[in-house]
Simulated assay, not measured.
Amino acid sequence: MTEHTLPTRRRLWPLFLMPALLLVAAIAWSGFWFFSVAQVDRIVDSWRAREAAAGRAYDCGDRSIAGFPFRLEVRCTDASVALTSQTAEQVASQTPVTAKLAEILVVSQIYQPSLLIAEFKGPAIFADRGQPPSLQLNWVSARSSAAGLPGPPERVSLVFEAPALDRLGGATPLPLARARHVEMHARQLEGPAGAAPRIETDFQFEGASVQDVHPLLAELFDAHLRVVLSGLKDFRPKPWPQRFRELQAAGGRIEITQARIQQGEMIATAIGALGLTPAGNVDGELQMVVAGLDKVIPKLGIDKVLEEGVSQSTLDRLAPGVRANDVNNVLGALDRAIPGLGRVVRQNANVGVAAGINALGQEATLEGRPARAVPLRFVDGAVMLGPIKVAQMKPLF
């Protein structure tokens, strides 16, 4: 007799288990994403309130959030900021400086919420205290990143490609500053527990030029500057004059650990430290090493000053303590003694000044080239290259 075995029934529920789990995970992930969207609105509104209390009122014409499922993209069009009491000139006035930006896009990955990456679309338009727009900043691309959020950021970076700053108001924009590439990186240095924070900042400029500040800056230059800032009490938003006052009261310093600038055949490096006086002026000394110093002296315009006659105000800027009458009388006496001799002295003034600075400095070598080590001093806001006053900085508060 033959036995027949009945076929066993196959269980069907394992076939539906994986799709069901995927569906539950998708629903949970969607819920988490939309919950994160709600948190973004709350965080942004809280941040705007803190900034407004510090005199920086941010607004967004249209804000939207996208990026589902793995990241958050916050897009703000027609962005604007109104700054009150951010500079020393504004302290007496509560009318804000306003800046408008075409668009800001901030991106955060769901799995890495402590890192924010932002892109900016220009131009940025600036208007001073209720006046018509006065400045315009444009660029090919601009982006930033901040790590370590939502607390004080551990690292911040800002990169511009081909930034261009123009003054508005005339028939055509007036160029003020240009660069091929600009970078800024900042990070908080580790220190003893309870110690005041120290910030290291790295600036890089390629193919840069600045107009209407000093002739030396009007020609293209490359620069790399690394500084360490100490004396910060906290990272709370506050007006710049208040920040600088706190730095001065705490004995804050700007330590320049690396600085290099190249302009044509001239190369200069510097290290040193700067501080602030009770009046808000920059004070300190940098040790500079310069190759091609003779290429810099003509750009100070000393020969033109002497050729046109020396006013006391101009001489105070170039060589404090020397009387204009004495200089003009000597040059006039040379002309009377030997006609034309005074003019020769005027035309060769730069050679004499360069020789004088070389005599004060020490021989050195910079990147394989002969160079001179010269002190660059900041005396209560005055910028002194050796004995020559080359600029005067405004107080920071």
Rank of each mutant, 00 (worst) to 15 (best):
T5A: 15
L21C: 10
V24G: 13
I27K: 11
W29C: 02
S30Y: 13
V40D: 08
I43M: 13
D45S: 15
A49Y: 13
E51V: 00
G55S: 07
V74N: 14
T77V: 10
T77A: 12
V81T: 12
T84L: 05
S85D: 13
Q90E: 15
V91T: 14
V91F: 03
P96S: 07
A99K: 04
E103M: 07
L105T: 10
V107E: 02
Y111D: 08
P113H: 04
S114E: 09
S114L: 10
A118Y: 03
F120E: 01
K121A: 01
G122H: 03
R129P: 04
R129D: 14
R129G: 08
G130T: 05
Q131D: 14
W139T: 02
S141L: 05
R143K: 07
A147D: 13
A147N: 03
P152V: 03
P153W: 11
V159P: 00
R167T: 05
H181Q: 09
V182K: 01
E183H: 09
A186Y: 07
A196M: 10
P197W: 01
T201R: 06
D202G: 04
F203N: 01
Q204C: 02
H214E: 03
L220I: 10
S230V: 10
P239S: 02
R243C: 02
F244I: 12
L247P: 01
R253K: 15
T257Q: 15
Q262H: 12
T269E: 13
G280L: 07
V282L: 15
L286K: 01
V290A: 08
G292F: 02
P298I: 07
D303P: 10
S311K: 02
A324E: 10
L331T: 03
A333C: 04
A337G: 11
R343Q: 14
V345L: 09
V353C: 07
G356F: 08
I357Y: 08
V374A: 01
A382F: 05
A382S: 13
L385E: 07
Q392V: 10
K394M: 04
K394I: 01
L396E: 04
L396R: 14
